[in-house]
Amino acid sequence: MKLPLTVIGGYLGAGKTTLINRLLAEDHGLRLMIMVNDFGALNVDASLIAAASEDLIALTNGCVCCTMGADLFLAIGDVLDRSDWPDHLVVEASGIADPAAIAQVALAEPDLAYGGIVTVVDAVAFDRLADDPQIGVQLRAQVDVADVVVVSKTAAGAWPARLTGTALDLATVALVAPLICGIAVGQVPDRRASHADYVRWQAAADTVFEKEELLAHLAARPDGLFRVKGYVAAPRGQVWEVHCVGRQMTVSVGKGPVGLVGIGLQGCVTLPEVDAWWNSGDL
């Protein structure tokens, strides 16, 4: 088992905290550990708080929010050393930080899985900030390293011209948890079900793959299918633990019931496309 880690990046005031507040309020059924810069702007319904201290808020739904202190990596180490891992670790990068400098640890650390980088961009301010002589380069880099870019503050019809790649309007996304954390096996009630925002896909994944074959097959997945995770049958009765986000793929020997789930963006990919891709591996 690996603990997936997602990093939320974006400049001061871009809407990272709003996104985290939405994540905390959603009924996603995941026990999340969320590390934030500060509690100041968090908006948690008092009736949902099970326990709170200076640097930790535990919610009744099993989620925990904590501040990370001066050393984020130490805090991640502390989580990994606990016996009760959360289902997903979410880290809020500070305003000017390079989210990749944090997310890379999920590719390096064997106990972590890469959960991707979600960068939040302010529709109104981004164009100006992206050209700022002091911070423009760092802010454009936050977008360049993102696996998913979401745009906030689009209410007045604003959209940043400086964004060239694919980006999602946060106002049109009803649920943010699938975006940030993906979905668990079993969370696709009907194999054909799709939420308005997302294409949800599931496959049995009981065909045996060699590791190299599987990596090559996953690499050929349709663009727009931005998360795939689960377990795939491996030779000699083993299983592969699979985590794919954006351009990143991790395949390692794991332990769990075979089955894959994927999630894509409505309008960017269709279920038949995903099925066609996956079945092309059934040789």
């Binding site: 050393d71 990596f73 130490l74 180490g77 944090i102 590719l107 390096a108 650390e109 064997p110």
Partner: peptide, 17 residues
């Protein structure tokens, strides 16, 4: 950088704190 060093530090008990 820390992301790449962290797994080693964690296992060898190198702790800046």
């Amino acid at each position: 950088e820390m992301a790449a060093m962290f797994p080693i530090m964690r296992r060898l008990g190198i702790d800046f704190r």
